[in-house]
């Protein structure tokens, strides 16, 4: 084999995450839920602490915690005294701090905090890779099933409802997806950077796409390039891998953004 085993594993895991995060991230971008995703991701650390505390799979507690927090947010958003972004800010940072505090209480357990916060993809085991594949595949299938109703709700909720889409079911499914992807992607880029892997490739893909499906697929491709580029850069210059992947994604975004003549939207908008 040309590659060291650990690089191969990292690449496999990273690409799998990018393939799911791109399409899902497109929805996060369309639905203006970047901060929502970020809040859920922040709460994942509390899930990690809970997992160690109870002694069950950390992946499971992360998913459960993210989903519960998502439900809590939906309930809280029904009141009108506080704006959504305020609520998200409160929950994001409280959950993260609560997670950090909880971890400090765990005696006899050594947790590599940096690995959870910023990812440690070069340390993924084959077990981790299989988990990423399994979780990622599940998320992709779920996303495919939800695709059309979710898209319809995203474009116009009332119209979708009148046309018979079960909006609340679809929204719950979408939150479940985000929670799943956070649990899956945690190992790769860490909970503080997960949202970036969802929204940066999707945002970069926007300029090159004229249909939602194109944007989702391109986001997966751009995400994969960012993962490959980030891992390569991190080995080349001995930089932390998670952040390197995000930097690579940001660089791709900047290049595409600055490219002249690729703007599908503006071409159409000229008729306005």
């Amino acid at each position: 084999m040309l590659m060291d085993d650990f690089i191969f594993r990292a690449l496999l895991g990273g690409l799998a995450v990018a393939l799911v995060a791109g399409p899902l991230g497109s929805f996060v971008v369309w639905r203006r839920m970047a901060y929502f995703g970020d809040t859920l991701a922040h709460s994942a650390l509390l899930g990690v602490a809970l997992g160690f505390l109870i002694g069950i799979s950390v992946n499971l507690t992360v998913i459960v915690l993210c989903v519960s927090l998502a439900m809590l947010l939906v309930l809280l958003q029904r009141q009108r005294r506080l704006a959504s972004d305020t609520l998200l800010g409160i929950l994001a940072h409280s959950a993260l701090s609560l997670g950090l505090v909880a971890i400090s209480f765990l005696e006899g357990v050594r947790i590599d905090l940096m690995a959870y916060l910023f990812g440690d993809i070069l340390a993924v085991s084959w077990n981790d890779v299989w988990w990423i594949f399994g979780g990622g595949l599940l998320a992709l299938v779920l996303l495919l099933v939800l695709w059309r109703p979710l898209l319809a709700v995203t474009v116009h909720e009332d119209l979708a409802r009148v046309e018979g889409v079960r909006v609340s079911l679809v929204s719950i499914g979408f939150m479940l997806l985000i929670a799943l992807v956070i649990a899956v992607a945690m190992k790769v880029v860490g909970i503080l950077l997960i949202t970036s892997l969802m929204i940066i490739p999707a945002a970069a893909a926007r300029r090159l796409s004229s249909t939602p499906e194109q944007m989702a697929l391109l986001a997966a491709v751009i995400g994969s390039l960012a993962v490959a580029g980030g891992i390569w850069g991190s080995l080349e210059w001995d930089t932390p891998t998670g952040p390197s992947i995000v930097v690579a994604a940001a660089a791709l975004f900047a290049v595409i953004f600055a490219m002249p003549g690729m703007d599908m939207l503006r071409r159409g908008a000229a008729r306005r």
């Binding site: 971008v29 369309w30 059309r148 898209l151 319809a152 995203t154 474009v155 116009h156 009332d158 119209l159 979708a160 009148v162 046309e163 926007r206 796409s209 004229s210 249909t211 939602p212 194109q214 944007m215 599908m264 939207l265 908008a269």
Partner: peptide, 22 residues
């Protein structure tokens, strides 16, 4: 149903064909 006003955000790339099929 034809709602009163519908504005599709610029961030969503979508053609009339795709919109109809939703």
């Amino acid at each position: 149903y034809m709602p009163q006003r519908i504005v599709v955000d610029d961030v969503m790339p979508i053609t009339v064909r795709r919109f109809m099929a939703l």
